[in-house]
Amino acid sequence: MNGKVGTAIRLVDCAKTFPNGTRALDKTSLEMRGGETIVFLGPSGCGKTTLLRVIAGLESPDEGGRVYFDDEDVTSQPIEHRNVGMVFQSYALFPNMNVGDNIAYGLKVHGVAPDKRAKRVDEMLRMMQISELRERRITELSGGQRQRVALARAIAVQPRVLLLDEPLTALDALLRERLRIEIDVLLHSLGITAAYVTHDQGEAMAIGDRIAVMNKGAIVQTGSPREIYYKPASSFVADFIGTMNRVTGTLRDGALELPGGRIDWADQQGSGEMQVLFRPNDARIVDDARAPLRGVVEQQFFLGDRTRLHVTGVADRTVVVETTEHREFRVGQSIGLRIEPGALLRLRD
């Protein structure tokens, strides 16, 4: 165990091909700064869990790949020598031990003296607010309690890096939301380097200092949640994170002409027919009479904190618009829209 926190992690040319020939991960290089939380986000089978297991030492990268913890090359070290904390989707708590013994297990393995061990377990239980569960059997715990124990067990040994593999996926929505916030606070208060695997974009946005979006065994974009959301590098990223409108218009006289009106395009380049993208909350509903774009409400969904509208007539296809206004809309109602030119995106692919 080392006292300092925030080990930097560096992957160099790490690929993974399984014995049956499946290539789970293409050559990947990645740097994680000490203390940063990075989220690997992508659909199932995109290689995110394989990448996590390469960092953990549960899988070794193909020939040529290297893994560094700070300046130490750990590529050939098995997981038990890397001092990583792991949290699994299935919790992986030991059913033959009670809660306290589960948390103490890693300390025992590391040879921590019994009195120090007990103190550390107390500290962990308090930190996760589960002190009353110390003597409980694992089978008596709810899913949320199990995940707290799993986190406590992983953190107790002060690992160099914390690796979380879909830790919240097995929980119900409300609990997921709450634990997500707690994990975020916990990771930042510990200052520990963390890698977090999820297929849930909401989770990724809430927890990640950076998000690495993955597809088909490769990282397709790395950036802050804001960058990923507003400046997606490809249409895959744009479509995978949130809702994206994709419309085709013609550029003429410094404006992009759409079936329902026009968007100013003065200071942007390009000519002729072109496709642009924008987020639902970047289209603002404005007074019908002076609106640069017009359309008709086809459907409305009241989502509580906002209202989502499907609007036809604006572009070559239905666009999705979101507003936080409290007013109600009618299906068939005509509305005006304005899209700021700065909110428009153009993608190469």
Partner: peptide, 12 residues
Amino acid sequence: VLEESAASLGAG
């Protein structure tokens, strides 16, 4: 997965 988590905690 139990073995993997034990290994991550340092157990040979």
